[in-house]
């Protein structure tokens, strides 16, 4: 931003404050990234000094924030059209698109280089790939092209626990892949359950959403399919190094309930759903949040128990 534009913005009281730059980094997404990356790090069989672990999680979070800023830069046209996103800093006119781009690129570079210096090059490479995947593959290429955009975007959100694992171990293994799979398979039923009761204005922004392109009945079917595929991934993790009786018991109950909810969604038609104000869809969506949080919470608990010599198989 030049001084002249700053002056213009300042004179109308719209100049971006520090909080606007924080908002640019999607702090709510960052908090999920911090949580899952931390669990990935804690669940790993190699311990990491606390300072290095803290720095690693911080730089992973900054990498996620950089992705958020780049996403807001590219999607400013979409965000402007949709009610839910119109108040974001770029469409609201508080931050110029070029500034969001600059901040995103700079923070991406800083986070990747610092993660590499603090931990190892594999973790840094994974973080760089995640940012590239989220921006180039998802945001720029496929988001506006296919109704499977949620599935593809979910992959970017699934990388953090894998990076956390790599920070500690320097490589990937079946446990890291299963943690990735857990978030990857969870994202579509979670988001599509929301899409069923939130009449969003994606069509106005010309973003293909499954509910619009393939209809709501198909969306209900896809929710069930992805939930069925999610179950073996979530349960399977319980039999690996990161699992244990506590996780397996939690996963058993949570997956049975999630599967029941997905089955109910599939069985309903629009008339029934509208009649009760999408009660089942709303309940499944809320439950899906607990589902993911409790799975990763159980993995963290198993890691804690193992450290105390009690957890695992």
């Amino acid at each position: 931003m030049t001084d002249a534009t700053a002056h213009t913005l300042a004179s109308r009281g719209g100049e971006a404050q520090f909080g606007d730059y924080v908002a640019l980094m999607k702090p709510r997404v960052m908090s999920l990234v911090v949580f899952t990356a931390l669990v990935g790090l804690l669940a790993a069989p190699v311990s990491v000094p606390p300072m290095i672990g803290f720095a690693a999680i911080l730089f992973i979070a900054i990498g996620a924030g950089a992705s958020g800023a780049l996403n807001m830069w590219y999607d400013a046209d979409i965000d402007r059209v949709m009610k839910r996103t119109a108040r974001r800093p770029v469409p609201a006119g508080k931050i110029e698109p070029g500034e969001a781009l600059g901040l995103g690129v700079a923070l991406s570079a800083i986070s990747v280089v610092m993660l590499g210096l603090a931990t190892n090059l594999v973790a840094a490479g994974f973080l760089a790939f995640t940012i590239f995947f989220y921006i180039a593959i998802y945001t720029i290429w496929l988001k506006r092209l296919t109704p499977q955009n949620i599935v593809i975007g979910g992959a970017a959100g699934a990388f953090p626990p894998m990076i956390g694992w790599t920070v500690a171990t320097g490589g990937i293994s079946i446990e890291a892949v299963l943690m990735f799979g857990l978030i990857f398979m969870w994202t579509p039923p979670h988001f599509w359950a929301l899409a069923l009761f939130m009449k969003s204005d994606y069509h106005k922004a010309r973003v293909p959403m499954l509910t619009v392109t393939h209809g709501r009945a198909e969306t209900r079917k896809q929710i069930l399919i992805y939930t069925v595929l999610l179950v073996p991934v979530a349960i399977g993790a319980g039999f690996t190094l990161i699992g244990g009786p506590v996780y397996l018991a939690a996963a058993g109950i949570l997956n049975a309930l999630f599967l029941k909810g997905a089955w109910q969604i599939w069985h309903r038609d629009e008339v029934t759903a509208e009649a009760d104000g999408y009660a089942v869809e709303k309940r499944v969506f809320r439950f899906s949040l607990f589902y993911l949080f409790l799975h990763f919470g159980a993995l963290a608990l198993e890691a804690g128990l193992r450290a105390a010599g009690m957890g695992g198989w």
Binding site: A6, S11, F18, Y21
Partner: peptide
């Protein structure tokens, strides 16, 4: 200048 006042929070944040 007014800009200094407007940017105070931002500068402290940075």
């Amino acid at each position: 200048h007014d800009i200094h006042k407007h940017r105070l929070g931002r500068n402290i944040g940075v």
